[in-house]
């Protein structure tokens, strides 16, 4: 019965949505309102005003950096929630020694590759200015490195290598950076989180870079921490 009701409801909602969709402007139409209004400035002046050739980065790091602040806070809130509900993992807590030792082939290759991965992560993060990439993308690569490390060398080894004490600062880095930059811009007499407060254009680029890197570090480490915390429960 419940199933029937839900399906009827879904069909109704679906018809309603399809009706709305059919009334929407044709996709890809260059004259549609989305393409006509706000974007002109992003495309025309974006690189000069923000110093980013990558317009997506220009938006998330300059035009709408306040949103990005909120978004990195979301990651941090999730982490806090994880810590509150599950608790921080500890090295050697209830350790059962690894039953299968990592295959030497895999571990050797990983040891060779991991530095490259990390460099690549930073490259993606820093290069978000001018080409495809950005803080989050780099951060996710970083996180995947930490996750792979735990998968290959065992959870305890990973926790020992990257203990919570070392991660804790990185986890809070980005929100703090954003707030500090925000305060700086207020003190400089402009509005909150204005990166263009100094007349020196390099300074703006420097700030963008700092935010980019902090975003990368924080998202990467926080996602890895989430993984470690979830993994901890699994092994208990």
């Amino acid at each position: 019965m419940k199933k029937f009701i839900v399906i009827v409801l879904l069909v109704l909602v679906g018809l309603f949505l399809l009706l709305a969709v059919s009334k929407m402007p044709i996709m890809g139409d260059p004259d549609s309102p989305t393409n006509a209004i706000a974007t002109s400035r992003y495309i025309a002046k974006g690189p000069q005003e923000t110093g980013c050739n990558n317009l997506v980065s220009a938006i998330i790091l300059n035009y709408r950096v306040y949103d990005t602040f909120g978004e990195i806070t979301v990651i941090f809130v999730t982490l806090t929630a994880a810590l509150a509900i599950l608790g921080r993992e500890k090295a050697g807590e209830g350790v059962s020694p690894l039953k299968v030792s990592p295959s030497p082939l895999v571990s050797t290759i990983m040891i060779i590759y991991i530095p490259f991965f990390i460099v690549f992560a930073f490259y993606v993060a820093i290069h978000g200015f001018n080409s495809i990439g950005g803080g989050f993308q780099g951060g996710v690569i970083l996180a995947s490195v930490l996750v792979i490390y735990a998968l290959v060398f065992g959870y305890d080894e990973a926790v020992r290598k990257f203990p919570p004490k070392r991660r804790i600062l990185f986890e809070g880095l980005a929100p703090l950076c954003f707030v500090v930059v925000g305060f700086m811009s207020i003190l400089a007499g402009t509005n909150f989180l204005n990166l263009n407060f100094s007349s020196v254009s390099h300074f703006r680029n420097f700030l963008t870079l700092i935010l980019e890197i902090s975003l990368g570090l924080t998202s990467g480490v926080a996602i890895a921490s989430l993984f470690y915390i979830l993994k901890k429960v699994e092994r208990e």
Partner: peptide, 21 residues
């Protein structure tokens, strides 16, 4: 600036707590 600070300050303090913890 106060409205936006009312957003930023609690969030920043919360992050700070985690560091000071």
């Amino acid at each position: 600036h106060l409205p936006v600070l009312m957003v930023a300050v609690p969030i920043a303090v919360a992050v700070l707590i985690s560091v000071l913890l």
